[in-house]
Design a binder for these strands. Structure first.
Length: 113
RNA sequence: AUUGUAAAUUAAAUAGUCGCGUAUAGCAAAUUCGAAAGAAUGCGUACGAGGAAAGUCCGGGCUCCAUAGAGCAAAGAUGCUUGAUAACGUCAAGCGAGGGUAACCUUAGGGAAAGUGCAACAGAAAAUAACCGCAAAAUUAACACAAGUGUUAAUUUUGUAAGGAUGAAAAGGCGAGGUAAGAGCUCACCGUAGAAAUAGUGAUAUUUCUAGCCGUGUAAACCCCAUCUGGAGCAACACCGAGACUAGGAGGCUAAGACUGCUCGUCAUCUCCUUAAUUUGGUGGCAAGAUGCAUAUAGCAAUAUAUGUACUAGAUAAAUGACUAUUCACGACAGAACCCGGCUUACAGAUUUACAAAUAAA
RNA sequence: GCGGAUGUGGCGGAACUGGCAGACGCGCUGGUCUUAGGAACCAGUGUCACCGACGUGGGGGUUCGAGUCCCUUCAUCCGCA
C-alpha cells in the first residue's frame, strides 16, 4: 500500500491526544500512539482560526512532503498526529525546519534509526 | 512633459529529480480489501485551481414536497423613465437633484391635501400662529394752556404677520408703491403651483397664460399606492447492500401531513405523538453550459441573431508540493465542493487605450 | 449549505418612543484611619487638551440631530441538517 493512510474520525484524533505521547518542535507538535493495524496512519490538524485556507493548505503540504521523505525500514504501526505550534509565526513556515522537527521526533520514539 | 478622470488586459517564466488527484477498449498481472454492494494495486499517456474560486448580499436552473393548485389575510422585497435579460434589488441609455475649473463622479429619486405619530433644549409661537410690539377707538387719571382741546400713562375692544434674544426649520424672497398701522393689498424680478401649446415613446424640457401662493419638515416613523414573491435545499434527491426494527397511547371521520392563519380543492393509505434507538458503507446526481472567443448584421449601448471556432478540475478530511539551477520588475489578494447571471469586499505591480486642465516648448 | 445573536471606559453591564452617552458594580490611583496591612470612609479615573474637539467594532447614508433607523464590511459566538 503506497498511499498514505489517514485518520478520519473525530474520536480517533481524541484518542491520540489523550493517550499518546508527544514531542514539541519549533513549528510542529507531534503526537504518537501505537496501533495494531501493521501500518502507519497520520492526521494533520490545523485550526481555522490561525490563518486562511491557502496558508493552511501550504502547511499541510509541507508536513506531508517532509513525512514522505522518511523511508521506514522496519514495519512500524503508529497513529501520528501533527499540529501547528501556535507560538511559531505562520509566515516563517519552511520545509527545512519542519523536517528537522520530524526527524528529532521520530528519533526520540525510535521509529527510525 | 506634469497633474488627473474613465475603461480594459495580465496575475513571473524555463529545465531536471521525487511526489499527489482524476481519466484511460495502452501494456502487464490476476491478486488484494470488504459481510455485501462495490473498490483498489504497477508502468505509460493525457489533463489538473481564480479574477475574485472569498463574503453568501440578490436572481435563476435542477431536485423533492401533489401536477405546485384557487381566494382572502399576514409577512417580506422593490420604488424617476425607456429598454435589455431566463430572472434580478443587476446592466445600458436618458431625465431630475448634488459635487468638481474640466474630463467626469454620486444619487432607495412614488405619495405629506387618505389618516395617525414625532419635532428634545431654546423660543411669544413648532402648525386651526396675537405673548410683546405697532396702530385706531372708548373710558379713567395726571399735566398743560389760548378752556375744550392737546400730551402722557393705565385698562378694555378692534385691526395688524413690518420688528422681536431662539432654533435645523418661523408661514415665499427682495425692492418700490400703498396704508391709521400693516399685509401679494398692488407692481417689477426671482422662486412655487396649475393649465395649454411645442419637442420627445417617456421621465422631462422650453414657451405662453393663470393663481398672489390656504397649509413647515419627517415615509431610511407607521402607513397609502403600484409591481413582485409557495417552501426546503446536492448533507436536495434516486438506487444498491448490510444492521436495527422496543414499549405505550391516539386517529383511520370532520383526524394528521404537504411554509404561517382561514376557506375551498387535490393527493396517498396507513399515519401521528411520547419513550428507547436514530448505526454504517457504496454508486449515481457531477461537469457541454441562458458557456467563452472571433467575425458579420441590427442597435447610441446593454444585448440579440447568424456563421466559425474552443472547451477532459471534479475531490469527499478533500488533489498542485518539495529540492536543485537560471533569468527578471523579486512575485499582492487568495484555494473549486451541484451549476450559472450579477453585486460587494481584498489586491504587489506591469501594460494599453480614450479624454480633461493649465503651464512650458515647437 | 441554511438560520440566528452580539460588539459601548481596564473588566462586567445600563441607556425605552431617535434628543445631555458613559448609570451601576468591580478594578486602579490618591487621601483619611492604623505601628504596619486589611476592612471601612472620602475624592478622582476615555483621548487630545484644560475654552473646546474627537470618541458606542470599521466605512458610508437618511435626519436639524443617530449607541438607537438603513446599506455595506470586519470580528466573535450559537443552532439545524
Amino acid at each position: 500500500m503506497k498511499r498514505i493512510k489517514t485518520l478520519k474520525m473525530n474520536y480517533e484524533f481524541k484518542n491520540v491526544f489523550s493517550k499518546g505521547k508527544y514531542y514539541i518542535g519549533k513549528q510542529v507538535i507531534v503526537y504518537f500512539l501505537n496501533n495494531r493495524l501493521g501500518y502507519n496512519r497520520i492526521g494533520i490538524a490545523i485550526s481555522s482560526k490561525l490563518c486562511k485556507a491557502v496558508k493552511r493548505n501550504r502547511i499541510k503540504r509541507l508536513i506531508r512532503a517532509s513525512y514522505q521523505r522518511f523511508c521506514f525500514t522496519e514495519v512500524s504501526s503508529y497513529d501520528i498526529v501533527f499540529i501547528w505550534n501556535k507560538k511559531a509565526n505562520i509566515e516563517d513556515a519552511s520545509f527545512e525546519i519542519i523536517s528537522k522537527d520530524l526527524n528529532k521526533a521520530f528519533l526520540k520514539f525510535g521509529i527510525i534509526k
